[in-house]
Every structure is written in structure tokens, then in C-alpha cells.
Design a protein around this nucleic acid. Structure first.
Lengths: 181, 181
DNA sequence: TGTACATCAGTGAACGCGCGTTCACTGATGTAC
DNA sequence: TGTACATCAGTGAACGCGCGTTCACTGATGTAC
């Protein structure tokens, strides 16, 4: 079934580091089916990858939303922190999925308000409304934190050292501290 | 000759986005020689790539050094700015080379003092000694700026929009402003 | 209930491709006498 | 200067591989009568 193919592809993407290890034949192998069978459910490889991207995008957005909701509404800064940590956690736990998302960002409808960046922007705006002073406008603060987090995560991926994962977490907090006054 | 092969590989890496487009056969084609000829100068593909990495690493370090030297010694902050801008400029002008470097960082002798990060650390230490107040220790400031710059550059690479290159430059300045008091 | 038939998800085999690498060769260059 | 020979950078052809994709097929499932 279509779902099983996607699950096999996701599993493969979790094991391998990035998109280049993701092949039609590999997915078929992982799913225990013939390569040709995939073409009954996806027009071509690009369609398969697109479906994966859509799925992962929703996963990431939901994880950030859940982190947001799990914080008390009267702690806007905590909510931003939680969202960014959810973001970096996703990137650390699923490097393959994360890289797939980032490298195909251009194929997505350009950053809606419910996407990762939009969420963080809204988070910082809530902070400012709650009286927390920022050193730069909320929109810029979100970009700085967002971009910085991506940078840290990307370098962690490149380093290949799992022990440094906790450094990512403290880096994120340090970044947030830098944009608040 | 060996040098011509490396030059052809570098040219190819400049045109294509990343390492995955870099093949022995492609380099041979670009150099106008037979694929087998490459093996007279490099043991295998990995050796060719390693030579490219070494060359690019030196290029980047030299560019940062030159930027450093082109600033007056009594403007330590300007020197840091110049170095980071040289770094991001390299990443923007040569995405393929930059990605090759970053993704193979683990194969290099771990970040010597003359490497990009070491240079920026030294730069911030000079700032502090000159009386410029930092919000975090020089070593952390260097990491934040360095990692943030990488994040911005990586996202620019992923966006594929050349018009946004100037945003990278202003982002770098914004980052530096954030770590100074 | 039983039979004939249509549908269509899944398949094995094959295609052409580009890849990294090997191998016996060739032909120019330089050395020894 | 002329000749015989060694060296070795460069080569064409071939290898085995994994890839994306196509195609005619098969066999189970569901429907019509």
C-alpha cells in the first residue's frame, strides 16, 4: 500500500543521512516489494519525495505546535523556547528528514504563518506584547534565532558526533538570551 | 597534469551545487582527458576530493587572513567584521566549495587556531582587550557569530535566490551587533 | 449459489544510463653508450 | 651525432554496479448475471 511505501521510505531516510541514499529500489527493498510496484502509487521518484516532504513538514509543524501548547499561556518566552527546542529536537532525531525539508524548502508554499518560522515570529510578538524587551524587532529576532538554530544543527550533522547534541540545546538558549534585552 | 585536473574539478564544483555532481568521469570530461588518466595522479576519487578540500581550506583561510590584514590594527571589531564577511563571501561565491568544506570538516585536523573559527575567536579576544564589552565570552561570541553565519549561508544556498545574497551580509552585521554590549 | 468476466495492484525482466575502477596498450621523452 | 632501450603519463575498452523507468504479464478481488 501507499502508506507502507511511505513508511519504508521514512525508515530509510532515518537510517541514512540524507536524500542521496533514498532510491526507488532502496525503498522497494525496505518495503519488501518490487521496484515497479512503487509506480502504482507514485508517478515517479519526485512524487514520492514530495509526499515525504509534505508528511515531514506536517510532523515538524505539529511538534512545534504541541510544544507551544504544552506551555502556560502566560509565559510567552517559555513558549518560544519550547518551540525552538522542538524544532532542534526534530532536526537532531531525524537528520535525514530534516535535511530533506530544508533542502527542498523552495518547493513549499513560501513560509506560511503556521510554518516553523511563522510560529516563532508570532511567539516573539507575544513576548513583546507581554512587556519583554527585545533588542531587535520580533521578526528579526525570530530570523536570528531560527537561522542560528539551523546553523548549529547543520554543523552538528556535519560533525557526526552524537555527544554534541546537548550543545545544540544550550546554544539555542544562548541565542534566545542574546535577542532579549 | 595534476594541477589541471584539480582546476577542472574546482571549476566543476563551482558550476554544480555540491559534491554529488563531482564524478571522476565528469572531471575527466571537464579537463579534456580520459577518466583513467586521473588515476595516474590520484589513488582514487577520495584522494582527489581530499586534495580539493585541502586547497579550498587554504583558500578560505587566506581570504580571511587577507581581510584581517586589510583593516587598521586599532579597529579590532572592524577586523572581526571583515573576517566574517570574507567567510560569508567565500560561501556565497563558491557554494560547491563551501559545502564540500563544511561537510568534510570532520576529516580535517580539528579546528586549528589559524582556521576560520580560531581566527574569529582571536578577533573577539582582541576586541575585549581593546575595551569593547561583549555580552558573552569571546569564545562563545565567536561560535555564535560563526554558527549563525553558517546557518544564514546554508539557508541561502537552499533558497536558490541570488538576490538574497545581500541579506546574508546584513545578517552577519546584525549578529555581531547582538554579541557586543 | 455458480460462473463468466472486468479491474487493477503487484511483478520479473529488461532498457539505457552514468558511475568508479582496472588493464594491457602506446607513444613520447630522456638516458646510456 | 646516432641508436637502443627504459620509463611512464595518457588511453580505449571493458568490468560490474545501482540507478529510474517501462512493459507485458499474472493472479487475486469484486461485480453481473
Amino acid at each position: 500500500l501507499r502508506v507502507e511505501i511511505l513508511q519504508a521510505a521514512a525508515r530509510l531516510l532515518s537510517q541514512l543521512g540524507g536524500e542521496q541514499g533514498l532510491s526507488i529500489r532502496g525503498v522497494a527493498r525496505a518495503a519488501g516489494i518490487a521496484p515497479a510496484s512503487i509506480y502504482r502509487h507514485f508517478a515517479d521518484k519526485a512524487a514520492l519525495v514530495r509526499a515525504l516532504i509534505d508528511y515531514d513538514y506536517e510532523q515538524l509543524s505539529e511538534a512545534m505546535g504541541a510544544a507551544d501548547d504544552s506551555c502556560p499561556p502566560d509565559d510567552p518566552l517559555g513558549r518560544v523556547r519550547a518551540q525552538i527546542h522542538a524544532y532542534s529536537q526534530f532536526a537532531i532525531e531525524s537528520p535525514g528528514h530534516y535535511r530533506l525539508l530544508v533542502n527542498n524548502r523552495s518547493q513549499r508554499p513560501g513560509a506560511p504563518a503556521t510554518g516553523p518560522l511563522g510560529r516563532v515570529v508570532a511567539g516573539f510578538e507575544r513576548c513583546e506584547r507581554a512587556g519583554i524587551k527585545l533588542r531587535i524587532p520580533p521578526h528579526r529576532a525570530a530570523i536570528v534565532v531560527f537561522v542560528g538554530t539551523h546553523g548549529r544543527v547543520a554543523l552538528w550533522h556535519a560533525s557526526g558526533d552524537p555527544d554534541l547534541a546537548k550543545d545544540v540545546s544550550s546554544f539555542v538558549d544562548e541565542l534566545i538570551d542574546l535577542v532579549i534585552d
